[in-house]
Design a protein around this nucleic acid. Structure first.
Lengths: 339, 339
DNA sequence: TTGATTTGTGCAATCGATTGTCTGTTTTTA
DNA sequence: TAAAAACAGACAATCGATTGCACAAATCAA
C-alpha cells in the first residue's frame, strides 16, 4: 500500500521486462515506440498505480511547468478573479500556479521574486505593489530570460508584455458621465502617480473636463493611497471645505465607499448634493447604499489574457515580447450618480 | 550573464579546487566541514551568484518544501483570507504554497488532488467542495502518508486533523439573538446537510429554539445551495407565504443578502417586518442597506491555525494527528436585526 | 539474395544536490 | 612514543525521468 508511492518507470519496466527508456518514451507517446508496447506500458502503469515524479522530470528537462504569480493582495476581488483566470487557463495547459502576495510592499515583492526564482518557475505574471518605485528585483527574471508579463499595475521601465484595462478611457467615461449628469465641480481622488493605471485614470478625467471646457482646479485633485482610511481623509478634505465639489470620481471603489460613508455622516445627500463614481466594480459596490456607479474591469479576463501571453512566450520563445494588450472597461450606472 | 543561471555546486567546487560534496556540506552548515572552508565556499557562492537548484535537492531528499491548498473558490473573502493566513505562516517557515480551486465541483476537486500529488507537495490543506459526497480521492494522500488537514468544510470520514469555527455556537447565537429581539417565527436557510458546518449551524439554531421553548416548524427550515439565485428562491418560498416568518437566519451572507433584496422588492421593512442574520461577515455585509447582522469568522485565523497544524505534522511525524481545533466566532450586530 | 532503410528498443550519461563510506591527517590519550 | 580517537574532506552511488547514440530485427529495393 505504501509502496504505491514509490512506483517508478523502472518498476513498470521490470514488470514488462523492457527498459526504462522504453517506458519513458511510451508514456510520452514517442513515435519510436510501437503501439503495442505503448498500450502494454500504459496498462501496466495504471495497474501499478504509477504516478510520474515531476521532480525528476523537471530536473532533467529543467522546466517545471509552473508559473509564478505576484500580486498585491489576494483578498481584493479584482486580483482574486485575475488569479481565477490565470489558474483556469494555466491548468488546462498543464501548468501549475504558485501565488505570492506582496501585501503592497516593495520589500515583500522582492522576496516573492526570490522565492519564485528559487522554485524555477517557467514564467511569471506580476502586478506591482503600490509603493514599488524600484524595479531592480525583477531583473532576476529578465536577466535570465525568464518570461515576465505584467498586468494591471505594470512597469514601463522593463521591456515586457503587459495586459491592462483601458484606464484612460475609464477615467474619461467616468468624468464625462458626471458631466452629463449636470455636475459642475468634479473632484478626483487619484492613486499614486508612479503607477500607470492611476496616471491614466487621471489623464482620462482631465481630458473629459477639457473636452467640455471645464476649468481644472488643482484643489480638486488629490493623490491618495486609496485605502479606506485615506479615502476618509480625502473625503474630509474635499467635503468639509465651504466650496465643496458636487461630484467626485475616485480611482477605486474603496475610496468611493469612504466618500459615500463620510458624506452620509455629515448629512449630504447622494447623488443630489454629491455624485460619486468609483472604479473596479467591487462586489460590495452593488449593495452599498446608495449603490455605487463605477467602472467595471474584468479581473478574470485580464488574468486569462496575461496567461495566454505568458504561455505564448514560454512555448514559443521567438517573436515580439513587448506587446501591450488593452482590455475594455464598462460604465456601470447606479444610484450614486443617478440624478 | 546567462551563465549565472547555471552555477552549480560543482562550479564552486572547481573554483576552490575541492569536491562537490564538501561544497554541499559547507552550504548546509554540516559539522564535518571546517569553518575556514565554509567561509570560503560561502564567499565563492556569493561571488559566482550561485542559486541552489531546488529541483535537484527535492529529488534527492524527496521533500519539496511546498504545501498544497484546495479550496472551493478563491474569490470568496473567507477563503482568500484563509489563504493569506496560510501563505504568511508557510512562507516564514520556508514553505511554498500551491493553490488549487475546485470551483465547488467534486470532479474538479479530484483533479486538484491529482495535481498536488504530482507536484509532490509535502502536505495539503483542504476545504471541500459544496457537492462533494465521496472522499475517495483524498485517499491519494492519506494512503501515502501525506499529511492532510481540513478546514472549515471538513470531512469526518477521513481521520485527519481539522480546523473549524464554532458553527454550532454561531447558529445558536444567531437564533438566540433574533429571539432576544422579540422575533416569534424564525426561519432558517441552511446549507447542504452533508457538510458539517451547515449541520452544526442548523443544530445550533435548533438548540436555541428549543431552549426558549419555540415550536420547531419544519416549513421554516429550508436546505439550499446558498448561492445568490438559490437564496432568492428560498426568500420567495418563505416570504410569499401568507404565514411568513418574522425573522430569517441564513447560513451564509450571500443568501442573507438575497433575502434582504427580495424583501425590499416586495415592500417588507427590515428589520421591522423581517429581521435577518447571516453568517461569515463578508466585506459587503457592512455596506448593504440595511447593513447585515452576521456571525464573524476569521478566515485568516483558520488558515494560520491549519498551517500550524500541518507543519507540525510534516516536521514531527509522530503524535496525534486527528486533532480538531475549534475557533471562536462573534456576533456582529447591525441594522438588519436592530429592532 | 544482398545491401540499404526503417522501425523498435536498450545502454548509459545526464540533470544538480545529497549522503554513506572510505582515506588521510591531526590531535589526544595512555 | 605508539595507539586510539577525532577531524576534514573526497569518492561514488543515488533520487527518477529523459535522451543521444548504438544496435538488432524487420522491411524494402534492386
Amino acid at each position: 500500500m505504501k509502496k504505491e508511492s514509490n512506483i517508478t518507470i523502472h518498476d513498470i519496466a521490470k514488470a514488462l521486462n523492457i527498459s526504462g527508456s522504453t517506458v519513458s518514451r511510451a508514456l510520452n507517446d514517442n513515435s519510436r515506440i510501437s503501439d503495442k508496447t505503448k498500450k502494454a506500458v500504459r496498462d501496466m502503469a495504471k495497474q501499478l498505480g504509477y504516478q510520474p515524479n515531476a521532480l525528476a522530470s523537471n530536473l532533467r528537462t529543467s522546466c517545471t511547468k509552473t508559473i509564478g504569480v505576484i500580486i498585491p493582495r489576494i483578498s481584493r476581488y479584482f486580483f482574486s478573479s485575475a488569479i481565477t483566470g490565470i489558474e483556469e487557463l494555466a491548468r488546462t495547459r498543464g501548468y501549475n500556479v504558485i501565488i505570492c502576495q506582496s501585501n503592497d510592499q516593495e520589500a515583500r515583492e522582492s522576496d516573492c521574486v526570490q522565492t519564485l526564482f528559487a522554485s524555477r518557475v517557467d514564467g511569471v505574471i506580476a502586478s506591482i505593489a503600490i509603493n514599488t518605485e524600484n524595479f531592480e528585483h525583477y531583473k532576476t527574471f529578465t536577466d535570465r530570460n525568464i518570461p515576465l508579463v505584467f498586468f494591471d499595475r505594470v512597469c514601463d521601465e522593463l521591456e515586457t508584455s503587459q495586459v491592462v484595462v483601458d484606464d484612460f478611457k475609464g477615467g474619461f467615461i467616468a468624468a464625462e458621465h458626471l458631466i452629463s449628469k449636470g455636475c459642475q465641480r468634479i473632484a478626483h481622488i487619484g492613486g499614486p502617480q508612479h503607477l500607470n493605471i492611476y496616471i491614466n485614470r487621471l489623464q482620462g478625467y482631465l481630458k473629459a473636463l477639457r473636452k467640455h471646457n471645464f476649468e481644472i482646479e488643482e484643489d480638486l485633485i488629490i493623490e491618495s493611497l486609496l485605502t479606506r482610511e485615506d479615502g476618509k481623509a480625502c473625503a474630509k478634505k474635499l467635503l468639509d471645505s465651504p466650496n465643496r465639489p458636487d461630484a467626485i470620481f475616485a480611482a477605486n471603489d474603496i475610496s468611493a465607499l469612504s466618500i459615500i460613508l463620510y458624506a452620509k455622516e455629515i448629512g449630504l445627500r447622494i447623488p443630489e448634493d454629491l455624485a460619486v463614481v468609483g472604479f473596479s466594480n467591487e462586489p460590495f459596490s452593488e449593495y452599498v447604499s446608495p449603490s455605487l456607479t463605477t467602472i467595471e474591469q474584468s479581473g478574470f479576463d485580464v488574468g486569462t489574457k496575461a496567461t495566454e501571453l505568458l504561455l505564448d512566450i514560454i512555448t514559443n520563445k521567438t517573436g515580439n515580447h513587448q506587446e501591450t494588450i488593452v482590455l475594455p472597461i464598462k460604465l456601470i450606472e447606479r444610484e450614486s450618480s443617478n440624478r
